[in-house]
């Protein structure tokens, strides 16, 4: 466990993990919610994708085999999915999922670009850079403890941030030759 002396937010936490993974030469790094929403038994599935199927980023998705419900909470999810489809021509069914596994290539990317966050716009960046992103069906539970950092106002702000980032910044990401 790495404890940071100053609370700098979620992104900073993920980034320090990526630095640690690189410094210790790890092959795979996993992004995982600690509030009981995610179940560790599905991690094997994600890691399998990377190890066996040559995938660079595996996303634990709720909606690969199951249908996305038409609820208010899914409006944002659908909107981000739609924008990602337009920008990358790829269908990401659960872009806001916080359960992801990254291989060495993706870990290196996190280390070389400080603007990468654990949010959907990073997925767009990685697709644009030519990484293979694949979704894997998982189940998620309701959070057992802790509180989401999103309330109504923050949700709107989050959506605007993510959409602006995808549309105006990540769209212009070019694949390296």
């Amino acid at each position: 466990m790495i404890s940071l002396p100053i609370n700098f937010g979620l992104t900073s936490g993920i980034q320090v993990g990526m630095k640690y993974a690189k410094a210790n030469g790890y092959d795979i790094a996993i992004q995982f919610d600690g509030d009981g929403q995610h179940e560790a038994k599905y991690l094997k599935k994600l890691v399998n994708e990377i190890e066996k199927n040559n995938v660079d980023v595996a996303i634990g998705s709720r909606f690969v085999e199951k249908k996305k419900p038409f609820t208010a909470r899914m409006i944002g999810n659908r909107l981000i999915s739609f924008v990602i489809k337009i920008v990358t021509w790829k269908k990401i069914k659960d872009p806001t999922s916080g359960m992801r596994a990254y291989n060495k290539k993706a870990i290196d990317m996190f280390n070389s670009n400080a603007s990468l966050t654990p949010e959907p716009d990073t997925v767009v960046y990685m697709i644009k850079k030519g990484l293979k992103v694949k979704e894997v069906q998982v189940e998620m539970k309701d959070r057992e403890f802790g509180e989401s950092y999103l309330n109504i106002f923050k949700s709107v702000k989050y959506m605007v941030n993510i959409l602006l980032s995808i549309i105006f910044i990540r769209t212009f990401t070019r694949k390296e030759k």
Binding site: M1, I2, S3, L4, P5, I6, F8, S12, Q15, V16, K19, Y20, A23, A114
Partner: peptide, 16 residues
């Protein structure tokens, strides 16, 4: 902000 964040990371990794 970026510099403080990196210092924060450095301290945490070093302590670990």
């Amino acid at each position: 902000n970026e510099k403080i964040k990196n210092l924060n990371h450095y301290i945490a990794l070093k302590e670990n």
